[in-house]
């Protein structure tokens, strides 16, 4: 036996797979978004409001729940293409599983594909899924200290949606402090406070998505 020094990150093979997937999606002109948050912070509800708010955009959704198909059925009932991806009990999606889901669903003719990642603020941030854009949701019910506790997710996200702002009067959530904490970790992060329930703030969010879809196509 001989010793071979590697010094490779364990995510090395996934990182390369993710880069390949990103290039394939670029070529196909499909913007893939990796949507991450804790369980119940409003991913599926936001997707529903987004589908309604962007009627001319063809949206497809990959639902990565650990074992139920509830969310995929909801999305399909709102008129978007949806597939349930099986994660075999894993706590995050990686590029290989994302590719399988996309291929299983088919993405021809799609403008925007969204991966609803597994509800968890830690593991999904560590694995590149091959998405062109990483978006995280923090609901105001979770508290404004989350950037301090889960810095990596804030660092790796391009955009932060602060959801359920219709409930602000009932919670001690300091919006300014939260945004300041997030920006300290990631000065370029785009922030969208919104309520999928009342529609407040939804316009800025869908405008952002339209712009990102255009950018993705122009540079392909």
């Amino acid at each position: 036996m001989k010793v071979i020094e590697l010094h490779k990150s364990v995510t090395d093979s996934n990182d390369r797979d993710a880069d390949r997937l990103r290039a394939e999606m670029k070529k196909a002109g499909v913007l893939l978004i990796n949507l991450m948050s804790s369980p119940g912070s409003g991913k599926t509800t936001l997707l529903g409001a987004t589908i309604k708010g962007m009627p001319d955009t063809r949206i497809a959704v990959l639902e990565a729940d650990i074992d139920s198909a509830v969310d995929a059925e909801k999305i399909a009932s709102w008129g978007a293409r949806a597939i349930q991806v099986h994660t075999d009990g894993m706590c995050h999606m990686d590029a290989g599983m994302t590719r399988e889901g996309l291929e299983g669903m088919g993405y021809e003719g799609v403008d925007l594909a969204v991966l609803e990642n597994i509800g968890n603020l830690i593991c999904p941030a560590e694995f590149d899924t091959g998405a062109g854009l990483n978006v995280m949701i923090l609901s105001i019910t979770e508290g404004d200290d989350k950037p301090l506790k889960y810095p990596l997710m804030f660092e790796t996200s391009d955009a932060l949606v602060i959801s359920k702002i219709d409930a602000l009067p009932y919670f001690n959530f300091d919006m300014e402090k939260c945004i300041e904490r997030a920006r300290r970790l990631n000065p370029d992060i785009k922030v969208f406070p919104l309520s999928a329930k009342t529609g407040e703030g939804m316009q800025a969010w869908t405008d952002y998505l339209h712009q990102e879809i255009r950018n993705w196509r122009e540079n392909s």
Binding site: M1, K2, V3, I4, E5, L6, H7, K8, S9, V10, T11, L148, L152, R184
Partner: peptide, 21 residues
């Protein structure tokens, strides 16, 4: 101060293997 950041302790790397070729 709160202006602090982690410099090590978050890694997960494969350092080396012992192998037969």
């Amino acid at each position: 101060s709160e202006r602090t950041y982690l410099i090590q302790g978050n890694e997960c790397t494969i350092k080396e293997i012992e192998a037969e070729t």
